[in-house]
Design a protein around this nucleic acid. Structure first.
Length: 739
DNA sequence: GCAAACATGATTTTT
DNA sequence: TCATGTTTGC
């Protein structure tokens, strides 16, 4: 097959270029992913580069997996020899192998943000500092920032100039000591330690530097300084570094992603070839123009002109509703309408928002109308308490010196060890420079802090239990080990008695399913690999596209995706741009604008931008002002729906909504809106049903009506379906048939 | 040691 | 509003 067929000239050039450093600036929808995969294929098939000698760095594990799949499926290329992964995953692999040289045993554990935070708190206690005065989260963030710049505690100490910096420094130093004692690395350490390894063990650097001929880095605008340093060092031998990014889609600066990397690249490699991908294959002209009008306001930006051969399409719809409930209602109605008339399916639609909290009203509306939705993100699987507890238990088996995990599980109720005992243990451990696990061992042998006999017996039992699990871990597969750990630690009984114990137990079983993939590996290795996978992979479940399921997602997570129909809700000052960014101003505001741009450019055919007049935030209600970004879209691209424009000015602090005087005199805004919404949907006469009737729903199948409630002119019916369970549906919309 | 009452404070979140 | 962390009472 011809690898470069169907590529436009700049794409083709980007795929074939073999003259050293390459910077690809790829606008949204410009076929960036194709270019990367085809470039790899071209390197292998045409230039004869062994896949073993290619490294591709992606932003997420998901992206890595997809890239591998694409290469295998589309191009029939064996991808198992390729190094594809995130910076973190690749570095973890390197450290598993050679970490010993930088003080990491190969059974090291990886600390996530919650673990980091616990460790910071522990350090504050150790240094006798008040955690109310020194916010642990801020300290964690400051440490992470230092690490993103590859600064060690002493580097940082050299540049402190305030009391705060000084505190951060002291904690950072202790924090690193504690990580060392726990044989643990946090996310940032994975990168920093590899860089340190390369700096101090030239032969290791040589090994990797010689092996890799070609590097590809995706989402380069969202890399941080240390990541760039890493790739520069790795690529210093052959200089075939290809980076792909779009400065306009840089939305992770709060994660210390540094857009200057793109500038640095051009400076560090003056001979770098720069290729612009400006043709958009995704969106209609109207959508693309709206996006351009918003992003072009940014000052800190290289002008870039995207163009498309696609049709104008429909206008961008700006919708004003009264409340977030009405906003949700509009979305639901529009999805139903589109699926009736435009050949669009609910699965083609996505609802995007700035903050997770905004998904609630949407979810409620979807549930009410019996529409299916898929919430992306939210409370993430691996962040759930029960999952973290179980993982902590397994981590102790892998690495008993992991102090944070041990402190987490030892104080779980039901075992008679509480905060008091734990504090006594940690204090003693600290004073004697010993890990917690060793301390418990000493206590069970009669030493340690002065405990009463009862506590001593309890701790002895706990130590024996752990020790037994560690021994079992030597020869049991990871699934059996998990089962035994749950039993012996009493965790199973403990969690099942919780209020939502069933759900939590389900989650643990879900985790067990993940573990099954690692069950056939040799005992120790299975555990290591399983724990590494769950530490580095954030998303347990995937966005699988189903025809009937609408996606609900934050703007950040929407990066890289595309949908025929996009609804962005909460286009309001304070939400988008977010209040915190308005307060910060400048660069923060420009990032909000980019975020808005990312959202808009996800849309292929239809784009809806919604805002409300009233929104409740943290329970209390407040007036909202349309987002400034809406003002930047030229009127000729826009169609307005929902409530009419505010034609009054602000009255003191409260914006007052005025109805248009010529119509609907004497009814409230909410009534007006619901009237309009009703007018938009076909007014089929309501089905005459009463409780006890048997019905059929064209999706949920057979069921029995168990309740009816009037909602305005409509009725909400509660139906117990034979297969689909109990649902609340609106009679006017549910496709019901009386049996 | 542990559960219930109370206080608090809250974007985004690849790894 | 709601999910966390802290204090209090048994």
């Amino acid at each position: 097959m011809d690898i470069t067929a169907d590529l436009n000239p700049p794409q083709k050039e980007a795929v074939e270029y073999a003259g050293g450093p390459l910077l690809i600036l790829a606008g949204p929808g410009s076929g960036k992913t194709r270019v990367i995969t085809h470039r790899i294929a071209c390197l292998v098939k045409i230039y004869g580069v062994s896949p073993h000698r290619i490294m591709a760095v992606t932003f997420t594990n998901k992206a890595a997996r997809e890239m591998k799949e694409r290469l295998e499926k589309l191009l029939h290329l064996g991808a198992e020899d390729l190094t594809v992964g995130t910076f973190h995953a690749i570095c973890a692999r390197i450290l598993r192998q050679d970490g010993k040289l930088v003080g990491l045993d190969n059974n090291f554990v990886i600390y996530d943000e919650e673990d980091q935070q616990s460790l910071v708190k522990q350090c504050l206690t150790d240094l006798d500092l008040d955690s109310r005065q020194y916010n642990p989260q801020k300290i964690r963030n400051a440490i992470s920032y230092a690490k993103s710049l590859n600064l060690t505690p002493s580097d940082l100490a050299a540049r402190t100039n305030s009391r705060w910096d000084d505190i951060v420094c002291r904690i950072y130093e202790r924090y690193q000591e504690q990580l060392g004692q726990s044989n643990a690395a946090d996310f940032d350490d994975l990168l920093m330690k590899v860089l340190y390894l390369f700096d101090h063990q030239p032969e290791i650097l040589e090994k990797y530097r010689n092996r890799y001929l070609h590097f590809l880095v995706d989402e380069f605008q969202d890399t941080n300084i240390i990541q760039y340093q890493l790739i520069r060092l790795l690529g210093s031998r052959h200089r075939n570094i290809c980076v792909v990014g779009d400065p306009d889609q840089s939305i992770y600066s709060w994660r210390f992603a540094d857009i200057r990397n793109i500038l640095s690249f051009e400076k560090d490699y003056p001979d770098a070839k720069v290729i612009l991908l400006e043709q958009n294959y995704r969106s209609t002209k109207n959508i693309l123009e709206a996006a351009a009008s918003i992003i072009s306001v940014n000052q800190q930006r290289k002008a870039k002109k995207l163009w498309t051969e696609n049709h104008d399409g429909t206008p961008v719809t700006i919708v004003r509703t009264y409340s977030e409930q009405d906003e949700a209602q509009f979305v639901v109605n529009e999805i139903l309408q589109l699926s009736r008339s435009n050949g669009i399916k609910p699965g083609d639609c996505v609802v995007m928002y700035r903050t997770n909290a905004q998904s609630r009203a949407i979810e409620e509306a979807f549930i009410r109308y019996g529409l299916k939705y898929k919430l992306v993100g939210g409370t993430r699987f691996y962040q759930r308490r029960e999952i973290k507890d179980v993982l902590a238990l397994l981590r102790i088996i892998q690495n008993p010196f992991d102090n944070i995990s041990l402190s987490r599980i030892i104080k779980l109720p039901g075992r008679g060890i509480g905060q008091r005992t734990l504090s006594d243990l940690t204090n003693w451990a600290r004073d004697n420079h010993l890990p917690l696990f060793t301390t418990i061992k000493i206590v069970s042998e009669g030493g340690g802090p002065p405990f009463g006999q009862k506590v001593r017996t309890t701790l002895e039992g706990y130590y024996r239990m752990l020790n037994d699990l560690i021994i079992q871990g030597q020869h049991l597969g990871v699934v059996d080990l998990l089962g035994m750990a749950l039993e012996n630690s009493g965790y199973r009984n403990y969690i099942r008695e919780e209020d939502d114990g069933d759900e939590r137990w389900e989650n643990i079983l879900e985790l067990r399913t993940v573990a099954m993939d690692f069950n056939d590996l040799p005992a120790g290795e299975g555990l290591v690999r399983f724990l590494e996978q769950v530490s580095l992979v954030a998303d347990a479940d995937e966005i699988e596209s189903k025809e009937d399921t609408t996606t609900l997602i934050t703007l950040h997570q929407a990066k890289g995706l595309e949908f025929p129909v996009v609804f962005i809700i909460g286009m309001e000052e304070g939400l988008l741009p977010h209040r915190r960014s308005i307060e910060e101003g400048g660069a923060e505001l420009e990032e909000e604008r980019r975020l808005c741009y990312v959202g808009i450019t996800r849309a292929q055919k239809h784009l809806y931008l919604l805002h409300t007049v009233h929104r409740s935030i943290f329970g209390s209600s407040s007036e909202s002002i349309p987002s400034r970004f809406l003002d930047d879209i030229p009127e000729h691209l826009i169609e307005r729906k929902g409530l009419p424009e505010i034609d009054s000015t602000y009255n003191g602090h409260s914006a007052r909504y005025k109805r248009r005087p010529d119509e609907d005199e004497g009814i409230t805004v909410t009534e007006l809106l619901s009237k309009r919404l009703r007018q938009q949907s076909p007014s089929n006469d309501l089905l005459q049903i009463s409780p006890g009737d048997n019905i059929r729903h064209n999706k949920f199948g057979k069921g029995q009506v168990i309740g009816i409630k009037s909602v305005g002119n409509d009725k909400e019916v509660i139906i117990a379906f034979e297969d689909a369970g109990v649902k609340k549906l609106l009679l006017s919309l549910a496709p019901l048939e009386k049996l």
